[in-house]
Amino acid sequence: MKANIYRYDPEKDSKPYMQEFDIEIPDNKDIMVLDLLHLAKEQDSSLSFRRSCREGVCGSDGMSMNGTNGLACITPISAVAKNNKIDIRPLTGMPIIKDLVVDMSLFYKQYEKIKPYLINDQPEPAIERLQSPEDREKLDGLYECILCACCSSSCPSFWWNPDKFIGPAGLLQSYRFLADSRDTATSERLKDLEDPFSVFRCRGIVNCVNVCPKGLNPTKAIGKIKSMLLNKAT
């Protein structure tokens, strides 16, 4: 298996380049791309990438594999390799720190902007804030996001305006709190999203849904936010 891996070391390289690795797959097994990276690292220990849980829960190893963003730890090589070749690059449109490690500051900044926590101005109950099963169900498909940035980094609107457009990941979380029956800050939250950039840069091209490793749908959530903004304005 030939693996073309994106390399860049700011201490040594003036610009990024692709390094080819010839990797022997043990027993011709269908290993995950992350395993492939570990095998490449055995050949060249200077190769850098992020990983932690290696089972698609932590969201550390988001990267572009043969042109599509995904988590290396849960992507089998058979799903992405073409002609026994695989091209591994960092997440698209994000500043590169080293090799496959990207700077996610702007991504987190956008996440922080949407106030990703429950706001409730009612006095705290003795035990907990209750929610009906129906209201709880409204959060399904929203709360599961692991912030791996695969979606935002596949979104052209986010490439061009990472500082002003919240991006699919942030907006999915924004809707998660807008839809929460226990949250009382709905109108303040919507007010923060009214400008032409935060939400309305989304053109519904569905790149985000296409790459989400958790099978979530930011486009739909963004559509719901737009409807809420419309209802608020009329």
């Binding site: 960092p90 449109g93 296409n210």
Partner: peptide, 15 residues
Amino acid sequence: RPEHLDLTKIKMPIQ
């Protein structure tokens, strides 16, 4: 810092 934004290497859906 450089960015990877080589549009010829990024696969996008028909949408």
